[in-house]
Amino acid sequence: MAMLEIRGLTKHFGGLAAINGIDLDIEEGEIRGVIGPNGAGKTTLFNVISGVYRPTSGVIRFNNEKISGLSPSVIATRGAVRTFQRDAVIHDFDVLRNVTVAGHLHSDQSIIKTLFGDIKGSREKDEEKAMKILEFVGLDHLCHELAANLAHGFQRVLGIAIALATEPRLLMLDEPVAGMNTTETAHMTEVINRLHEEKGMTIMLVEHDMKTVMSICKKVTVIDFGEKLAEGSPSEIMNDPKVIEAYLGAEEIVT
């Protein structure tokens, strides 16, 4: 049984179908890339899965429970957490506090504890947990830096750290290396690879940068005009004539 199961997912805007009858299965422990030309519906697919948009029709099941139609916060609580293309961090918090806030689902603080309990003690516990995550993604040396002052690449990594603090079971990354330079891309790729290899995290990533997708993912889904075009290993995809015609033909496969 797949962890994430998508059947016949369709989303219309006005009369236009941004995605049209997509089926997609993601197994536990898998690392899956979703690619497609600009405007193919990748971001819409992402927004529908994470609950930003309600699907026009179709079903999304996560761990055998229907999640389509739920609000983003509930979907996140169930364990499917996304990141953003933009620098989605709390700009006026420092790096550590960004991660502790995101750890709220697993923090033992309630309103009663806030009033009568030991805030300092539980804050220290939360910070310890957060530091572990920061060490894992390699941001521990910046933990007291204001998030707004970080370089773009580090902000994106912090975005992943924030998502990790919610202890997700499925991590959905929206173009994780968009707008990054070579060093930043290498850092991000390493973080994603280690997440997959060391923690066994199930990851789905939407990406424009072919090189990254082909080097990280074992299996790739191609969508075009809101429909699934092909699915398979990177080498199969690169040799699929349909894919080459629709998407890769015009440009070089590896850019």
Partner: peptide
């Protein structure tokens, strides 16, 4: 000073992000 206070401030800065990390 508590976690709840931090959450309030985080909501002020970026409600969309807060929603996606499970904050109602």
């Amino acid at each position: 000073r508590s976690h709840i206070g931090d959450t309030f401030k985080a909501i002020h800065t970026d409600p969309v992000l807060c929603e996606t990390i499970g904050i109602r």
